[in-house]
């Protein structure tokens, strides 16, 4: 490695700053989300879910944050017990949340939402159709985590 290469990439530096922002830390201390591991550009984040019988108290997302924040994270629902993609029968159920966590699109490797890089790339119409939730470079980690937290904590969420 050249002595002049940065220790962390620009996207990693921005992520670090956003992960230390008061708004993100507030969610950490409330228990809403937690950074489980960072192996850049792979970041594993867990998001708390409302209590439902037989369902976990949080869901894990294995995220790729390449080019963050110019590009959105892309997140694979993850099973920390098997260290593999979360199986269909373990994914959150509910009208809206199940659509985002669907397994029948891209084999479930990304969230079906305008704030997921893989989904937004293949649905460019969402930029104009969903301006409130489409990712752009002004968004940050707190904003992104909040979108998913709201899905898992609304009455729409039914468990697994």
């Amino acid at each position: 490695m050249s002595a002049f290469e940065p220790v962390t990439r620009p996207d990693h530096r921005v992520f670090d700053a956003h992960a230390k922002a008061p708004s993100f830390l507030a969610g950490v201390f409330r228990g809403d989300w937690r950074i489980e591991s960072v192996n850049w550009p792979t970041v594993v984040i867990s998001i708390a879910a409302a209590p439902r019988d037989g369902a976990p108290d949080r869901f894990w997302l294995r995220c790729d944050l390449t080019n963050y924040p110019a590009e959105s994270p892309t997140a694979t629902p993850w099973d920390p017990d098997t260290n593999a993609q979360l199986a269909a029968d373990r994914r959150p159920k509910g009208d809206d949340v199940a659509m985002v966590f669907r397994k029948d699109w891209e084999d479930g490797r990304a969230l079906y939402a305008a704030y997921d890089r893989v989904a937004l790339t293949s649905h460019q119409n969402w930029v104009t159709e969903h301006p409130r939730t489409a990712w752009d470079a002004t968004r940050d980690l707190t904003w992104w985590a909040t979108r998913i937290w709201e899905l898992l904590n609304d009455d729409d969420y039914l468990g697994i």
Partner: peptide
């Protein structure tokens, strides 16, 4: 604004 108001 076109912005969602974050619940917190």
């Amino acid at each position: 604004t076109g912005m969602i108001a974050d619940r917190q």
